[in-house]
């Protein structure tokens, strides 16, 4: 009995923690069903008749569809490219351990160290000189580059955990290296691949600065639309902000929900391959 109660209390505590962290997000989502005066109302309104006008307005906006499409295309393409090339490199680092492995791994991580506003500066000047500003490909490849270091690190950890015996068996049986990489190794590091995809996806999905500076009308994602669209008539358009944020947060949240298992395993950097 007391065991049961204790477990119930424990579970209640866990839920409480989760809800506390979720509360601000919930507040944004709740606001998206309010009218502007209701959002600013004091005392705050918890129970009200929801309005869907904010969403109707948002979905009717051609710019929304355009930017949403750009967001999806940029994030998906960039992380796929990044994870693909990272996987190949991680395999090489893990299996062949070329002389400079540690140094190269460190160098890769250094990409992530530079503050965005520092990294954007030379990239901006370079894009201007090469005429890549506001080009979709230029933007995608840039994001791919930014997603590479983390992907290489995760995937190398996972490949380290796959016994080289598999390769040897493959070679003995006459398999090509390509088959060994894609057919023998890849399936075993799947959680790492998923974790790398999701983490980088979240980064690219929410990226604002680079998109704002080196992007343009062809490449603007939703964060840029949020930043420019939130002012209206000199004031802040709270209904626009809350409804767009809510819509935009759904895909990554669904991803976290659906791939949670892989995400948790993925963050072990390959030290665990079972259930977490």
């Amino acid at each position: 009995m007391s065991e049961r109660v204790r477990e119930a209390l424990y579970h209640a505590l866990l839920w409480l923690v989760a809800l506390v962290f979720f509360a601000p997000v919930f507040w944004i989502a709740l606001s998206s069903f309010k009218t502007a005066p209701q959002i600013l109302a004091v005392p705050p309104i918890l129970f009200f008749r929801p309005t869907f006008a904010n969403y109707a307005r948002l979905f009717a906006e051609p710019a929304f569809q355009h930017h949403f499409f750009d967001s999806v295309a940029l994030s998906v393409l960039a992380v796929l490219i990044a994870v693909a090339v990272s996987f190949l490199a991680a395999f090489a680092f893990s299996r062949f351990r070329p002389g400079a492995t540690n140094f190269l791994m460190f160098l890769l991580l250094s990409i992530r160290m530079l503050p965005g506003s520092a990294a954007i500066l030379p990239v901006y000047l370079m894009y201007v000189a090469f005429g890549w500003k506001d080009s979709f490909l230029g933007m995608t490849l840039f994001y791919a580059m930014f997603s590479i270091p983390f992907s290489v690190w995760i995937l190398k950890g996972f490949i380290d955990g796959v016994s080289p015996r598999f390769d040897e068996t493959g070679i003995v049986n006459g398999a090509s290296w390509f088959s060994i990489i894609t057919r023998l190794t890849l399936p075993q590091v799947f959680p790492g691949v998923v974790a790398a995809l999701i983490f980088n996806f979240i980064f690219v999905w929410n990226e604002f600065l680079f998109n704002y500076i080196i992007g343009g009308i062809n490449t603007s994602n939703i964060p840029v639309m949020l930043a420019t669209g939130l002012s209206n008539g000199g004031g802040i358009d709270w209904t626009f902000l809350s409804s767009l944020t809510t819509v935009y947060i759904l895909p990554p949240i669904l991803m976290v929900y659906c791939f949670q298992r892989y995400l948790l395993v993925g963050m072990t950097f390959g030290t665990v391959r079972g259930e977490v």
Partner: peptide, 19 residues
Amino acid sequence: ALTLLFAPMVVTPVAAGTF
């Protein structure tokens, strides 16, 4: 519960800051 707990990480900073 874990998804809700992880939710703050995926909020766009622009929106999180303004809200």
